[in-house]
Amino acid sequence: MEEKLRINSEYKNINFVSSKILRILKELNVDEEKKFKIRLCVEEALINAVKHGSNLRPEAKIKVDFEIDKEQFKISIEDEGNGFDYEHTPDPTFEEGINKLTGRGVFLIKNFMDKVCFNQKGSMITMIKKLGEVIQE
C-alpha cells in the first residue's frame, strides 16, 4: 500500500497522518511495540517539520509519502524549509544535553527506526522500519 499526502503545516494534521498509518498497521497485525515506535517517529518528524521546517506557518505544505507492506514501513516527510545540519545534532544523552528540554526527537527516531536518512539540505527525512513477517487476517 502506498499513499502520498500533502498536508498543511498544522499540528492537527499530525494526528491525521499518524492515525491513518496506525490503522493500516493494525490491519496488518503489526505488534504494539512496532506500532508505538512507528507512531512516535512519524509524529516527531512531523512536529519538526511543522515547528522548525515550516516555522509554524500553516500555509506551508508538508509532503508525506509512505509505503507499507508485510516486510516494511517506509515514510518520507519533506517540508519547505531550509533544512538542518542533521550530521551534527547534539547527543541529548551526553552531560550537556541531558538537562535540556529539546533535542530528543531526532535521537529517538534514529534509535527506534531501522534506517534513517536525510536529503542533502536536511529538509526531507526518510525512515524505514522492518515489520518482518506479519500475519494477514
Partner: peptide, 16 residues
C-alpha cells in the same frame, strides 16, 4: 499509554 519527546521535556522541566 504513550509519551513523546515533548512529554519527556515536560517531566524534565517539572523535575528541575
Amino acid at each position: 499509554t504513550y509519551m513523546d519527546s515533548s512529554g519527556l521535556a515536560t517531566l524534565v522541566e517539572i523535575l528541575q
